[in-house]
Structure formats: C-alpha cells, structure tokens
Simulated scan of single mutants.
Amino acid sequence: MVIFMLVKDVMKKPITVKDNDDLTEVIKLFREKRISGAPVLNDDGELVGIISESDIIKTLTTHDEDLNLILPSPLDLIELPLKTAIKIEEFKEDLKKALKTKVKDVMTKDVVVAKPDMTINDAAKLMVEHKIKRLPVVDEDGKLIGIITRGDIIEALV
C-alpha cells in the first residue's frame, strides 16, 4: 500500500542554491527549473537553509505610507504627479537593492528535514505540522541527498 512507501522511493535529486547567491540568480533558477524553493548550501556543501518564493516575495515587498491618494487637496493635485514620479524611482532603486540581497540574509535557517527511511505518510505529517511545501532529505550524517515535495507525495498516491 502507498502509505508504506518510503521517502527514498519518491525523493528527487535536489536543485540547490548557494548561501552567497544573489536573489536575481535564484529567481532565474526557479523560473528555468520551474521550482518554487530550494535547499541552500554553504561553500562546504553543508545544508544551511532553504529558500522559497515566499522568502523572495517578502524581501521584495515594500510598503509606502507617504503616498496618500484619498481626497487630495488642490495643492496635492499639482504635486501628485511629481511625488508619484519620485516614488516610482525610489521603488526601482529599492527593487534593484533587494535583488542583490544574498540568499543567506532571507533564507529560512531552521530547516525541517526528512530521512530517507521515513514513510511518505510521516513526511506529509511533517509538512502539515510545519506548514511547509518541501523537505530536504538528509542521510545519517546530515548530508543532503534528495528533496521531497507535496507534489511528489501526491504523485506517489496514484
């Protein structure tokens, strides 16, 4: 029965990123490989984190309270186009800076992992408990050997 399938039977070879990569590189990799997250390795090849699209989105999100468009005064109507142009330029600069952010500055450092001999049922429980979509799979030495996603588990059911 499917419930007794092991993580090692359905895990995939992981696509990884380095902790010193820029977000621009990660975004390109995610798009090219059609993935939404990846384990993060340091220069020694050790698993040090995990990064996902949501980590990137949080970094790129800006909140601007200064631009108030509700019931502008006549003076605001004159200044608004100039204020808007300035804010757009500031946003572009902020975005450029954000894209140069290093993975290690935005990744999730407390990584929940799976072991290859766990059942996929146990892996699914971990994902639900921790509200995560992927689990790096590590061997007894903590070395990354694979990854299992919610999609992998669902595919294993059919």
Rank of each mutant, 00 (worst) to 15 (best):
E129M: 08
D22N: 15
I120L: 05
G146I: 01
G49H: 02
P116V: 03
L47N: 05
L144H: 06
I78D: 04
P74G: 01
K131F: 11
T149M: 05
L126W: 02
E32H: 10
I70N: 07
L157R: 10
M107Q: 08
D110F: 12
P136E: 02
K13P: 04
K8F: 09
I51V: 13
K115T: 12
D22H: 09
T62F: 12
K102V: 01
V128P: 01
G146Q: 03
L47E: 04
A124C: 05
K102Y: 00
R134M: 11
A38T: 08
R150E: 10
T119G: 00
V10N: 07
H63I: 12
I154N: 02
A98G: 07
I86M: 10
D152G: 06
V113I: 08
S36W: 08
N68D: 15
L82A: 11
N42V: 00
K143C: 05
I86D: 14
G49S: 09
R150K: 14
L60N: 05
K131V: 14
I56K: 00
G151A: 07
I27A: 12
F91P: 01
L157A: 13
A114S: 01
A38H: 04
T101G: 02
E93A: 12
V111T: 07
I51D: 06
K33A: 14
M118A: 08
E65F: 14
L95H: 13
L82H: 11
F91W: 09
H63N: 15
K96F: 03
V26E: 06
K96C: 02
I3V: 15
E89S: 13
D64S: 10
D64H: 12
L6Y: 07
P74I: 01
T24V: 13
K13H: 15
L41Q: 06
V112A: 04
T16G: 09
T24Y: 12
T101R: 05
M11P: 06
R34A: 14
E79V: 10
V106N: 03
L157G: 07
A98Y: 03
K28C: 09
I3R: 15
E155N: 14
E129I: 08
N68I: 15
V112N: 06
T101H: 03
V106I: 09
N68L: 11
K8P: 05
G146H: 00
E155F: 08
D117P: 01
I15M: 13
I3G: 13
N68R: 15
L69I: 08
D22G: 02
N68A: 10
D43C: 08
P136H: 04
V137D: 05
I154D: 07
L144N: 04
A123F: 03
I70R: 09
L99N: 02
D94N: 13
V111C: 06
D64L: 11
V137Y: 01
K13R: 15
V106W: 00
H130K: 15
L95A: 14
G142A: 04
D43N: 12
E79S: 12
T61N: 07
K115D: 10
R150G: 11
I120P: 06
E53S: 07
I78A: 04
L71W: 05
I51A: 09
T61E: 15
I148L: 04
D117G: 08
G45F: 00
V7A: 02
